Simulated scan of single mutants.
Amino acid sequence: MSRPLCCQNGFTCNTKGNKRMTADQYAWWRQALKLAGGYRELTHDQLLLLAPSADSPESGFFRNRPFKDAPLVPVAIWRDAAGNVICLQGGKEAEADKVWNYACRNPISEALYHSVTAGEPWPDEPPSVAKEHNLPPKTGDLHKDLTAELAAEKETVEGFLKKPISTQEQADQAGVWAKRLSGIANKADEQFNVEKRPWLDGGNAVDDKWRDLRTDSKDLAKKLKKHGEAWLKELDRLEQDRQRKAREDAARIQREAAEAARKADEAKAVPSVGTGLATDFAAEAAREADRLAHQLADAEREAQARPVFAGRTGAKMSLHTYWVANITDYGALVMALKDEPEVREAVQKIAGRIARNKDAALPAGMERVPDKRAA
């Protein structure tokens, strides 16, 4: 890999990568990169944790969309010896202030910056079907072009679905891929409606033409999300365990802090006589109480929930909580719903409808339970 950008621009680095300057201009980026985990998008809460504020461009490596729905491009920002802000976006000079609004949330490693600049794909980017399947040039016929694109996507997705997701990069790819397939479905839906509007009396022909394209792309998107569900649930389980342990640590530190505060109060009441040992003990007790108070604040922050997701902005895949019916006493439930027509066939459907309304009172014999699914 080529030398780091900080070295390419005249800054001397030691073996740890720290620049010998009056200040480390890459400190904010390093902290952001640590929170992001390499290339993942920072949440709003994570941005608030960073200091200084992310309101103005900071030196580092990022990725950005030059405009809506544009492909992601690598971004490098740094300050030269005179303090001038220099910004490269996709290898071309750009205005850092215009790039920063999106780029600040998307720090990447220097290695990834150079990799993408050299032509390698983003780690969360699904395979390019245009390259792998040698898609023909666009014909201008949206149906033919989307059909060819979907056929190529379908072949690649089916291979991907044969193996379980085992890495974060694969989970991210599934989320972005599902978004890409949903995009095909959306284009098909839009054109479908345009073509059908003048043909309300003869709409069946249009229905037949677009049915497979619309449903197959949506079904594949759903399969991709379902495929990533086990991975997301495991991440959710680990996060729940982490929060539980963090809460236990916070509770323990709280007890210790309370005990330290009590001892500090007792020490204050001891008269300062003789060699001053009582005074020293009181001061030490106060310092210990203050240390534990700060440690408690850190532990409480650690116990806060962290987001679990795959993909990126506009193509995120995360666990959503859906409320479904769990029938605990079928006989009691049937009796409670005895006035409904065809009770035995409809009872699960009715219970499901009730469960989805979280404010609805539950009849005897059922309960409302969460059901997390990839969405």
Rank of each mutant, 00 (worst) to 15 (best):
I165G: 00
D339E: 12
V273F: 14
C87W: 06
T147Q: 10
S272C: 12
K16M: 08
L200H: 09
D207R: 14
P164K: 11
G352N: 10
A23R: 09
V99N: 00
I86V: 12
E284Y: 06
K372E: 11
A297T: 12
S109Y: 01
A332P: 00
L319R: 00
L319W: 01
V343Y: 13
E149A: 05
E41Y: 07
G228H: 01
A364W: 00
A264G: 07
R368K: 05
A118L: 15
N186Y: 14
D201F: 05
L333A: 02
L333P: 00
V85K: 10
A374S: 13
A278D: 13
R30Q: 05
G159W: 10
I86Y: 06
K162G: 13
K338E: 15
N134H: 10
T15S: 10
D145I: 06
D24S: 13
A260F: 02
A205N: 08
I165M: 02
G90E: 03
D55M: 15
P164L: 04
Y322L: 11
A325I: 02
W78N: 04
R3L: 07
K358S: 06
F61M: 15
A118Y: 04
H294Y: 08
E158P: 02
H133Q: 14
D208M: 15
A36H: 01
S182I: 07
C13S: 11
R312I: 02
R30L: 03
R244C: 04
L72F: 14
A103M: 07
K349I: 07
A257H: 00
A76I: 06
A267Y: 02
H143R: 15
D290M: 03
A269M: 09
D69H: 06
V73N: 01
R3Q: 12
A82V: 14
K358T: 07
L220N: 01
R356T: 08
L296A: 13
A82G: 14
L35F: 10
L50R: 14
T279W: 09
P57T: 11
V308G: 00
